[in-house]
Each structure stands twice: as C-alpha cells, then as structure tokens.
Design a protein around this nucleic acid. Sequence first.
DNA 1: ATGGTCGGGCTCCGA
Length: 270
Amino acid sequence: MPTFKIASWNVNSLRVRLPHLLSWLQEVEPDVVALQETKLPDADFPSMEIVNAGYTPLFSGQKTYNGVALLIKQKNAHDHENIITAFPTLEDIQRRVLAVTVNGIRIVNLYIPNGEALLSEKYQYKLNWLSSLDSFLKAERDHHPNYIILGDFNIAPTEMDVHDPKEWEGQVLCSEPEREAFRTMLATGFTDCFRQLNPQEKSYSWWDYRMNSFKRNRGLRIDHILASTSLASQCVKCYIDKTLRTLERPSDHAPVVAEFAIGVDKNNTI
DNA sequence: ATGGTCGGGCTCCGA
C-alpha cells in the first residue's frame, strides 16, 4: 500500500532556514511540504536549491512579510493543477494562501493571520480572513473528496494545545471566536490529524523566542494538518518534529508531519 | 517584574 507523507513548517524566513530545510528534506523525504513565512519575493525564491534537493517549488511570496510555498517531490510533480493564490471573496495584498491539486489530492497551504491582540485591527482582519476561508472551503470541498488543509493556523484549538491554559485564556490564538472558526472547519468535513491519532498528547508546534520558552516547553499547538474525513481515516501517523527547534538559529515553529496509507484505488493513487 | 528575542531592513514593524 503506497504511503503519502505531507508536512507543514513555518520557517520564519526561508533565506535563513534554507540549510535546515535542505537537510530535513533529505532526512524525512516528504512527498509534499507546505512552508509559511518565507519572507521573500518570488524573484528571490531559492528554486535551484529546491530543485537540486528533488522537489518542484510553487510559491507566492512578497518582500519582508508573509509568503507561502509548496514543495512537491519530483516523482509526483508531473500531475499538478488548479493553483490558487488568493480567496475569491477577499482583496488582500498579503501572500497567505497557496492551493494546488497533486495527483487528485487537493492541498491548501495557509498562513492564517496572527491577530496580534483582541483589541487590535489585525484581530478583525484575522476574523474576516477566517470568514473568507470558510466560504472558500465550503465552495471547494464537494469537488475534492481527498482534501488537505495545512499550515500555520495561529489558533490553539483547545486547552490541551496550550502549556498554560489559565495564562492564555481569552488571549489571541486562544480566543473563543478563533476556536469557533477552527471548529467550523472541522464541521465542514475535516479532521485534525494530530489530535485524531494522539488524543491525549500535549505537544506544541510553536514556542516564543523569548524567555527560554522552548527550554521550558511553554508552547502552543497552532500548526495543523486537517484532512477530509475519508482521507483522515487513512492517516496512520502524525507528529511534530521538535528536533528542528533545537538547532542553531531555529525557526520559532517546528514542522508537523502526517503520513497516509492510500488505498489501492485507481481514482485515488499517488 | 508587564519584560524578553528573533527576522527584515532600516531606527521600527510584526510575530
């Protein structure tokens, strides 16, 4: 039975993290990787290094902020189509969305806005953005039975995803409207792969650079891989790779990896 | 104790 391995990582500058990424690709060999916060314009994307590592890159970037990319292992890359870099219902100069269909699996890479604080304008932007995402997913879902949404959601879905729920109660990343938006995604027909396979595990994907947060494991689980219900039932493994957070000059996020055992079905092979 | 540390790119913004 063929397996399909997909990963999501907020690199917080692809320029700085490229050496980490290249050695990690060689070690883990995912079929598809979703990157967020590449922080570089498309003209500066390190395409040659990615191609030499065995991947075909797709990217939607901008100077300084945001930026998303998808790396597709070359053996799968011949069959990709229907690339989208924005929601039809949202005018937005920020590069936060990149969707593509690879061998019949719809893959949507998201860098959901951070929101800064509940009283900030950026929080309203986040909620509005989440509303456009909801419309997009509802419009697409029925056309793609095999569907994966992954990325930096900037939402810790439940108390189990927070090192200190009291300290974070009502704060941005943990507020009720954000969690409501996350539950709406699940209700639209998606499953949180990590939580499905590790129902009790307190693991995090992000630790603030400040205050020795990683050493003290003061983290949040805000990076996610969601799969459509039928696909999620074929998910055999999902984990957060904390080793990258221990390297010199790490990203503040660790990658999330999911593995699927795809049934032998001619309409559903990879 | 209301801080702190990164990255980008320019003396401050965003996370």
